[in-house]
């Protein structure tokens, strides 16, 4: 499985340099925590790693190739859950997951029913998402990670509005994903109880 590498990344916002000369690599099985104060560029870095945002300098590569050249060939390995949930409020959870599945490389081993079950959304699968609570909507967004065969999970504050039980469950899921050879890069202010995570602090 290819590795994700960043070299000499620089990001500027509103004329201020958020970070520069940033380099790291993420191997299969690793979990990377991006830390830093508010406004230190964690979200921007994640968006650069996704390929949504261009770095002001530097390069992100996947298996040695520039992700901007790879385009869709890179995106089939990536699943991103950002600040904005990316779920359609007027559609039901099931419809939302079906769309997410079709947009990427569908994972044939996982049924949408199982994902709804896992995230405790099974009884709510026929109501519009807008009637769900914030925590339930977040769980639906995280459910997207399972319906495709993406190996690299990029997560921006995934624990926001999750309850204790949901947090434990999702930590376990990340750990299993890592053990199966997947990669996770996440930002969070929450203390994560995961063993051997790699950490990068953008404030220092």
């Amino acid at each position: 499985m290819p590795e994700l590498a960043a070299e000499l990344l620089e990001c500027e916002r509103n004329g201020r340099v958020l970070f520069s000369g940033l380099g790291f690599s993420l191997q299969p099985g690793q979990i990377l925590m991006l830390e830093g104060r508010n406004g230190s560029g964690k979200t921007s870095l994640l968006r650069i790693l996704c390929g949504i945002r261009l770095p002001d300098a530097g390069l992100v590569s996947w298996g040695g190739e520039d992700i901007f050249k790879l385009g869709p060939d890179y995106h089939e390995h990536v699943s991103y859950v950002g600040h904005r949930d990316g779920v359609k409020q007027d559609l039901t959870p099931r419809e939302n997951l079906r769309i997410a599945r079709a947009m990427g490389k569908p994972n044939p081993d996982v049924e949408i029913e199982d994902v709804l079950e896992f995230f405790d959304l099974y009884d709510l699968d026929d109501v519009p998402t807008r009637t769900l609570s914030a925590g339930q909507q977040r769980r639906l967004a995280l459910g997207r990670l399972l319906v495709t065969r993406a190996t690299l999970w990029l997560l921006d504050e995934p624990f926001t509005s999750l309850d204790r039980h949901g947090i434990d469950r999702f930590e376990k899921l990340m750990q299993e994903h890592g053990e199966a050879g997947g990669m996770v890069a996440l930002t969070t202010h929450h203390r994560v109880a995961l063993p051997d995570t790699k950490r990068i602090n953008l404030s220092s």
Binding site: P72, Y80, G82, R84, D85, G86, M103, T148
Partner: peptide, 12 residues
């Protein structure tokens, strides 16, 4: 709602 980001990250 962020769906556009997801669209840009599609493997198509």
């Amino acid at each position: 709602d962020g769906s556009l980001e997801q669209l840009m990250l599609s493997s198509h």
